[in-house]
Write a protein that binds this DNA or RNA. Structure first.
Length: 391
RNA sequence: GCUGGAAUCGCCUAGCGGCAAUGGCAGGAGACUGUAAAUCUCCCGGGUUCUCCCUUCGUUGGUUCGAGUCCAACUUCCAGCA
């Protein structure tokens, strides 16, 4: 059995479970650190094990030229469960959202990048990319994405999808969604051919798009649930206030016995909304990127290290991460971060990334326990009440 | 002592007659959600905002409609020769 449901929280869509993969089990809900190129920037595999990472997520687009005979997990030394994204995110980040931020608020300009400026062009067969660094053209369609993911050998793959932007209207989203569904079926067909190529089973999730429209979200869930996917990716660019409803529409329609991965979100409030509405796993670049940019997660809100020169306060009182256990203070970390010395900076990136990742992993562990105990709603209330943003 | 050279907003740096004055660092404020992100944006002489005013480029004078920019003297620093 691939997914084992171990508990449910009545009155919500929240549940706990275990995903069984060839490289180990994943206890859910959990957060997956993102190692786009196969490793988490500046973080050692041992660090990931120490902080309780259940799995990590990499990206087929970035690894499109790679091929690992013994699979990603062996190749990079992680040896645990791995996910790969299909490259679908790059359809937007190099296309309609090129140069823009993936916003969850309305204050940002709701405008797509001009077509002539895009580095990704969507067609029926797939997506034509221009490499942002060296300008080399490439093409990825559902078949190519499956071939890449199967060559990389991660345990759980995403079907190739088009992530639409907040600026896309209903008509475009509907057209795109129909294409994403066709791509999902093509992904499924191609995946079948290669999923055992490395000698162990690789799994495939279909990805649900459909923007913030209920009819599209429900219809795509009903459509995709008919097929033999191993699980589902919940995709999209969301406004925070819409997230819960969108996930509910999808997950009310999806079969309970298959796992669901919410793509690309990790702020604590989003994780609570996600879990409450039926998501099992999460991934996001935010904890590591924000760490590199000086933001440290604490249970009373995030802090900007810039403001803590010479501070002897702990990063987050009571934190059980290796960085805090080693006694690093806010002032220590700030000094390393702001140092002109490259090695010190790199040390900072590691220490801060590990701290932020552990923060999220501990959060999902606590959420798991709270679902099992039936105290999830209370835990959520208390956590979020305490989690202000003092900066 | 002589001969060259140099003094610019915390530091380095541009500037060669129209300048509140270039670029970098440091500093400050934001942003970041399936990683074109060890990144990006904004501020950084003062007047709390300003297409407005004030005070600035070692000091003091001078030339000029106008001087950080040209001239003179002085002060300090650097280099070469003694």
């Amino acid at each position: 059995m691939f997914f084992e449901l171990t508990s449910r929280l009545p009155g919500t869509l929240a549940r706990t479970g275990i995903i069984h993969t060839s490289h180990g089990d994943i206890k859910t809900p959990t957060f997956l650190p993102v190692g786009t190129f196969g490793f988490v920037k500046f973080v050692e595999m041992d660090d990931l094990r120490k902080i309780g990472a259940e799995a990590m997520l990499s990206n087929a687009y970035h690894l499109r030229r790679e091929s690992y005979a013994r699979g990603l997990a062996e190749h990079n030394g992680w040896r645990g469960p791995t996910f790969t994204d299909s490259g679908g995110f790059q359809v937007m980040s190099l296309g309609s959202g090129l140069g823009k931020v993936v916003s969850m608020t309305r204050e940002k300009p709701l405008e797509n990048t001009a077509k002539k400026d895009r580095l990704a062009r969507v067609a029926e067969d797939g997506v034509y990319f221009t490499d942002p660094f060296d300008g080399t053209p490439s093409f990825i369609g559902p078949e190519e994405s499956m071939q890449i993911q199967c060559k990389i050998g991660s345990d759980i793959h995403m079907a190739f999808d088009e992530l639409t932007s907040l600026a896309d209207d209903y008509e475009y989203t509907k057209t795109s969604l129909a294409r994403t569904e066709r791509w999902a079926l093509r992904s499924l067909e191609e995946h079948k051919k290669h999923k055992m190529d490395l000698g162990y089973e690789q799994h495939l999730y279909a990805v649900l798009q459909g923007g913030h429209w209920e009819d599209l979200r429900r219809s795509t869930a009903r459509f995709l649930r008919q097929y033999d996917f191993d699980g589902f990716g919940l995709g999209g660019a969301f406004l925070k206030e819409d997230l819960g409803a969108i996930l509910r529409w999808c997950n009310e329609e999806l079969p309970e016995e298959k796992p669901r991965h919410l793509l690309g979100l990790s702020h604590p409030d989003d994780i609570f909304i996600g879990v409450e509405n039926g998501a099992d796993t999460f991934d996001c670049v935010a904890p590591t990127r924000e760490a590199r940019h000086g933001k440290i997660y604490t249970k009373s809100g995030n802090i900007n290290l810039r403001k803590f020169a010479d501070s002897t306060e702990p990063l987050d009182p009571g934190c059980d991460c290796p960085t805090c256990a080693a006694g690093f203070t806010r002032g220590n970390l700030r000094a390393l971060w702001r140092s002109g010395d490259l090695e010190k900076k790199q040390q900072y990136y590691r220490l801060a990334s590990v701290h932020n990742l552990r923060f999220l992993l501990r959060l999902t562990e606590d959420i798991r326990t709270s679902i099992e105990n039936g105290t999830f709603l209370e835990f959520k209330h208390n956590f979020l009440n305490n989690y202000q943003n003092p900066c």
